[in-house]
Design a protein around this nucleic acid. Structure first.
Lengths: 211, 211
DNA sequence: TGCCGGCGAATGAACGGTCATTCAGGGTGG
DNA sequence: CCACCCTGAATGACCGTTCATTCGCCGGCA
């Protein structure tokens, strides 16, 4: 598996605009659903195909292989997450408010999308290979962005500066991930719960960091 | 897969005391090593066997199947964790000190055992089935124990009581898990780092909870 | 003490089932 | 009639598990 992700020959002009919707998208969405339910390894390619309403072979027109499908899901999710996060941070003044935004963004993207939440939090760790090779780079960027916000706060004298921003960013992410996992695996899908939990965690984290 | 864990017929008198060591143990230890390196699904049973220095078939004398090997690893780890945690909590006075112990225990067990750390933090999520069926019960007990400590502190008026202990226990665990994951996957294996990180996190968490 | 019979742990080659992936042909729009 | 997306049955590799066989050990017996 070489470095290049492998621009698969992409079917041209797939009824773009018509109600049919893009096949690639249908497959991706179906994969999220099935992966969430059964886990990556227990999911058969044919199941994704059926869920997407396409033939088995069609998947290979849009993705290199089964792994690639999972990788694209991460890419999409992490990409969006990073993008939204940076936008929000730029648009916000004050360290505290920024950290609250971080929490909002990370859990907010999952709100109402249990399937995505489960795929991302659970399946992200399915394969160390995947994790290390594909997810890691984007992921590190994400953590660094958070660490920067914290470091900024320390420089400005708002936050205690005897703690390592990187460690704190990991911990913040981990805490949110833990909350999301509980929510995704738990019985009640009430998105309000997720938001409430996020708020509580943000409070603790902020109080703990305040100088 | 019935409820009973399946007491596998245990080879009698396996050179006990001699240098040979117990086979079951050798297999378990080898499995931790290999799972950590390649992940559960990418690991071949034959690889575990080779790493343990036994024949493929021998594994099936001590374990029901490949899944069972993973399950036993969790069982062992979570069991120990819970046991140590409860002992420590009972032996400690004061909520703050107790929470510091929680952090110490959870990360302390992994200290110097990168492989185990990776297996537990990464592979715990390999299969929702495994996670839900086996790990969950012990795991919930673990989280509840932490939640109790927090609730206790709230009742005593030491900790702010407007936050949900369960959510906080999840967050605490998640944060520690995140730190451990970074450590396990990261380049430098320096156990000091892990301890330092744990201390920092404990500080933030405690400050954040203090009334 | 020395030999024998039997036990059962250990072995690893072979089996069989399970998918990921392929590809030859159908169908449709232009 | 061409182009090319799509199909889904067929393929073949892969790997967890089995089981017939080996062999080291032990207790009993002379």
């Amino acid at each position: 598996m070489s470095g290049t992700a492998g621009e698969k020959r992409r079917p041209r002009r797939a009824k773009e605009g018509s109600k049919g919707g893009d096949k690639r998208d249908r497959i991706l969405r179906a994969a999220v659903r099935v992966f969430a339910r059964k886990g990556f390894y227990a999911t058969r390619v044919s199941e994704i195909a059926k869920a997407a309403g396409v033939a088995d072979g069609t998947i290979y027109l849009y993705f290199k292989n089964k792994d690639d499908v999972l990788v694209r899901i991460f890419e999409f999710y992490l990409g969006r997450l990073l993008e939204v996060l940076r936008r929000e941070i730029d648009a916000t003044e004050g360290v505290e408010e920024r950290i609250r935004r971080v929490v909002e963004v990370q859990l907010g993207l999952l709100e109402g999308q249990r399937d995505l939440a489960e795929v991302v939090t659970v399946n992200l760790r399915q394969s160390s290979r995947l994790l290390k090779q594909y997810a890691a780079p984007l992921f590190v960027q994400y953590l660094e962005t958070i660490a920067d916000v914290i470091a900024d706060g320390q420089k400005q004298g708002v936050l205690r500066d005897d703690l390592n921003p990187r460690i704190l960013s990991r911990a913040l992410w981990g805490g949110l991930d833990g909350i999301a996992l509980t929510w995704a695996l738990g019985g009640d899908a009430d998105p309000t719960q997720l938001r409430k939990a996020a708020q509580q965690y943000a409070t603790v984290f902020l109080e703990g960091l305040r100088k």
